[in-house]
Amino acid sequence: MIKTKTWIIIFACLLAVSGGLSLWIFLKPVGGTVANIYVDGKCVRSVDLSIVTETYEFTIDTHNGTNRIRVEEGRISVVEADCPDKTCVHTGWISDSAAPICCLPHKLVIKIEKDKKAGDDVPDAVSK
């Protein structure tokens, strides 16, 4: 039998360690400016956020639904989605963090990375 005090200490340590880790993950810059959009693990579109000057939007169609994505100078977000939970919309803007935007129902993930993984504006780029 483990004492209640021991459990509390274990959980306090766990809280401190994972709290610190998550702060580090969310605040640490990844050093990249490219937003790669993945559907089903495949990169369907890359946007270099550092060269964006005007706000624009585009739609990503997945097998499970659509996500409307807005790009601004240096940042990207999902503004509309027809998924039931809307977590991706609530995540808001990301610009330089290791934590991706993800829409689990649509299997869509937006990650900030160093390199482009897909063509600029051609969704299913042939060249690669």
């Binding site: 766990l14 809280l15 994972s18 709290g19 998550s22 495949k42 934590a99 299997k107």
Partner: peptide, 27 residues
């Protein structure tokens, strides 16, 4: 499961914050 389904290991970066949340909500 999310990593398996989306094929995105980067989702693991959510693990620490999810553990924080789990400790609080679980308690």
């Amino acid at each position: 499961v999310a990593i398996l389904i989306t094929q995105t290991p980067a989702l693991l970066s959510y693990l620490p914050i999810l553990i924080v949340s789990a400790v609080i909500t679980g308690a």
